[in-house]
Design a protein around this nucleic acid. Structure first.
Lengths: 152, 152
DNA sequence: GTTCCTGCAAAAGCTTTGCAGAAGA
DNA sequence: TCTTCTGCAAAGCTTTTGCAGGAAC
C-alpha cells in the first residue's frame, strides 16, 4: 500500500515526464482522478476540490483536463449524452453504467477475441466497449422487474 | 427494391404503430434517417430538410428525435464529445469512426462471444462497441504513416 | 371541438476564449 | 526576467422550455 507522500511524488513525476508543470491545481486534479476511480464529471472534480482550494475555478479544471488529455494521461469518456466524464485508466477496458444508481463500473474485456465483420482494410487505433443495465447492488436492493419498468 | 411510395407507407405505419401522429415533419425526419445511414447530427438533419420545408425549426427536429427515441425507433450515438448523432438501426452493432474523414461506419459484431470479467450478477440491457482509426478509403488515398502522425 | 404539433423566442447548461494579475523557472 | 498558469468575465454552442397559433383527428 502506497503512502500519501509516495503517491504525490509519483504524480509529480508523471506530470514532469510529460513536460507539464506540476502546479498545485494540476496535482490535485490528477490525484483526485487517481484516488477516485469514479469517472467523474468536471462538476464532480470541481466540487470535490473546492473545499481544499477555495479560489479554484472551473476554467482551471477544464484547462487541466485538456492538458492531461493531450499528454495521454487521461481520457474522455463519452458514455452518455450530455455528461462528459474523465478516466485516468487509458488501457482498453469496458464501462458499465447502471441505469438505477448511475454509477459507472470498469470491467475487463478481451477485444482481441471479438469477431468483427465489415472492417477489412481498416486501421484500428482505439476500441471502446460500453454496456448499460442494472448493477448487482441495485438488483439486490430492489425487485428487478420494478426497476426494469422504471427505466424503460 | 422498394419504390418511394411503398417506403413512405412503411414509415407512416411505423409511426402509427407507436402511437405517433405521422406529421409531415416527422415523416421527413424518419425518412431521412432511413435513406441516409450516416448517423447524422441534428444540424445535418435540419440542413438537409430545410430546402424542402423552409418553415422548419430545429426545435421540431429535437422534438421529433426525442419522440422517436422514446418509442425506440431511433437511438442516440454518443460516439464522441460534443457531437450527438442519431441512428435508425437499433439492433446491436458496432460503430467505427475514421479520424481522417470523420465518417462513421457500421460493422457487425457478435457481443455474445465476448468474454467479460467483473460483471457477475449484473443485468445487461445494452451493449455498445465503438472503434476509431483510419478507414480503408483514407488509407488508400494517403500514406498511412502520415495520417498517423497527423491524428496522434 | 379537442387534442396534439410546430416553431419562434427566450432560457438554461456546458465549454471555450480573452485577458490581467499571479506564480514559477 | 520571462514564460506559464490561474481564474474572472464574457462569449459561443447546443439543447430545452414556454407558449401561441395552427394542424390533425
Amino acid at each position: 500500500m502506497k503512502d500519501m507522500k509516495r503517491n504525490l511524488e509519483d504524480i509529480t513525476n508523471k506530470l514532469k515526464n510529460n513536460n507539464i508543470r506540476p502546479s498545485h491545481q494540476r496535482l490535485k486534479v490528477l490525484e483526485f482522478l487517481d484516488n477516485n476511480r469514479i469517472h467523474p464529471t468536471v462538476e464532480q472534480i470541481y466540487h470535490s476540490l473546492y473545499d481544499e482550494i477555495p479560489t479554484l475555478s472551473k476554467t482551471t479544471i477544464y484547462n487541466t483536463l485538456n492538458t492531461l488529455i493531450e499528454a495521454g494521461l487521461v481520457r474522455i469518456l463519452t458514455i452518455e449524452d450530455n455528461e462528459v466524464r474523465y478516466d485516468i485508466r487509458t488501457d482498453t477496458h469496458g464501462h458499465f453504467k447502471c441505469k438505477s444508481c448511475g454509477n459507472i463500473y470498469d470491467f475487463e474485456v478481451d477485444m482481441d477475441l471479438v469477431e468483427v465483420k465489415g472492417l477489412n482494410g481498416f486501421r484500428i487505433y482505439t476500441k471502446d466497449v460500453y454496456f448499460s443495465g442494472i448493477c448487482s447492488k441495485c438488483l439486490e436492493q430492489e425487485d428487478g422487474a420494478k426497476i426494469f419498468d422504471k427505466v424503460i
